[in-house]
Design a protein around this nucleic acid. Structure first.
Lengths: 210, 210
DNA sequence: CTTCACCTTGACCATACGGTCAGGAAAAGA
DNA sequence: TCTTTTCCTGACCGTATGGTCAAGGTGAAG
């Protein structure tokens, strides 16, 4: 860090180090889980002494909480495309694209999120009960409208949303399994495109939107 | 354990205690992850002293390995319905039913499996590369045959399989999230049925099998 | 230059964890 | 009955972990 000679300003130091730590923490938490992650490992990966981590983040849980919150932001943001779309084909298509892109670009974030939820969401239960619940209810209403307008089959909106989450996040959370089945190589650009198209095609046709 | 007075025979003792420990271990590993789980916690949940765990399972990793292997057995067994079915509708329908039932009856097992894969499959990598790869290749060939016979759309068999895994396992791995969005209550019998039918309907229609 | 607030870090601490072991209890076999 | 094998467990050990702290370094403000 700070390879060039220019001394860093205060704000830069703080911002840069926090980002560095959060990045390293996301990786380590994703690879080892909360319990398996150690502050020492995160510190090594960030290239800082362990004590410095505790200067910026008081406890391991604080650090973890920040990591999870960051992911939740990204996660929610992906849903914007859902709102400004004229109909189910565009909305769901764009949503799948966005979430697949997240799975590809932020696989570690997705894993941390999955791990957190799997362990009973000890840290972000309140988010689930407020923000996520509201978001889900709103999108379910949107879907119901499309159904009422005859633009898609009468499917259960909740289960459709679960299906969208499941299929897209699977490519991040189970990326290692997919990679192994792909002969040990990560999916290529072409394969990612095929995955996206597969998911979109099957779901959109499955709900009678195309 | 051994509530009635009858003394247990050797074989019974061993079998009973191993089962007790494996059951407790599955729960704890699912709730806390490998790193977060402690032998003490597993021992408490099994109602045995910690030293007794190490009598039956030498190390924490041995115990974990056994838990994961048990799950893999169940997982693979669910695939039997795939083989003896006359066509895609029956095969995929039965497979979804079976996997949804596993998600409902063995949510902890599914979580441990997911956790293991998410962390790079340190313990069961060889299974992925042998048994699972073979299984997947065989099923993909089956699907390709159905496509060639014009019994379903020309979809990518691998991505279809991923979709089946993702959607069904989601109900176990993200069960807590679903429960929260369901007002804090577990899915009822009716809701589980609706979930199954939703998944089957969308996928089967989505691949042009119905 | 001086002062002050912020940043850095090696050394340290208490605790909790995985694992060991010796010695006793209980069942199986003779 | 006596012997052998298996099972049980409290007490213990070395280590690794999350977290603390005091002392020193460094950019900003006057």
């Amino acid at each position: 860090m700070n390879e060039n000679a220019r001394p860093l300003r205060r704000n830069e130091i703080r911002a840069q180090n926090e980002a560095l730590i959060l990045q390293a923490a996301e990786t380590v938490f994703a690879e080892a889980g909360f319990g398996g992650a150690t502050m020492q490992l995160i510190a090594d990966m960030a290239g800082l002494p362990k004590a410095n981590l505790h200067y910026y983040f008081a406890t391991k849980e604080d650090l973890y909480r920040r990591v999870v919150q960051n992911i939740f932001e990204i996660w929610l943001h992906a849903a914007d495309c859902f709102d400004n779309a004229p109909g189910p084909v565009e909305a769901i298509g764009a949503y799948v694209d966005a979430k697949m892109e997240i799975s590809r670009r932020h696989p570690n974030g997705s894993k941390v999120w999955a791990s957190e939820v799997m362990h009973g969401a000890p840290v972000i239960q309140d988010y689930l009960e407020s923000t996520l619940r509201d978001w889900t209810a709103g999108r379910a209403r949107l879907i119901q409208n499309w159904i009422d307008e005859g633009r898609m089959d009468p499917v259960n909106p909740d289960h459709l949303l679960y299906m969208l989450w499941a299929t897209t996040q699977h490519y991040a959370d189970f990326g290692h399994q997919i990679e192994t089945l792909n002969g040990g190589a990560p999916l290529s650009d072409v394969q990612w495109l095929a995955a996206k198209e597969s998911v979109k095609r099957i779901i959109l046709k499955g709900i009678g939107a195309i």
